[in-house]
Amino acid sequence: MSIITQAIANADREARYLSRGELNTIGHFFGDGQERLRIASILTNNVESIIEKGSQRFWQRCAVTPSNSGNSTFQASCLRDQGWFIRLISYAVVVGDIDPLQASGVRGAKEMYRSLEIPLRNVAECMRCLKEVTLELLSLEDAAEVAPYFDYLIQGLMP
């Protein structure tokens, strides 16, 4: 859900039109839209270098982990998942809500990694590394927009 569908759902529950206040909030959301799209494009255009730097940092911190064990399948899956998480974060930035991240990234993620026998502590650390290298890439303001989504993701993956 975006702030727009949320406001509509609230209004519909009371069978009324949106109030001036709600429309103003949506108006701001529309106004900031270009900025959110710009930030999402930065993530999209830099995803390869984010993953490369992020995984290097991750393997330095967590040397003993399946993706660093010399098994190329494990390594490829780890890099693929990192790309997925960055993608979901770029969606969350665009819609201005954790919803896409929650629906496709966090819900069930712990159970999945547990059953794959990948240590959750390491997955969370990997996300922390991605967060660091991503924020280094962004201006202070843009970083403030993106950071909460990483925090949500890290929280959601903590054992």
Partner: peptide, 10 residues
Amino acid sequence: MQDAITTLIN
């Protein structure tokens, strides 16, 4: 319920 943004994201 979807809007123009969530439809594209989905």
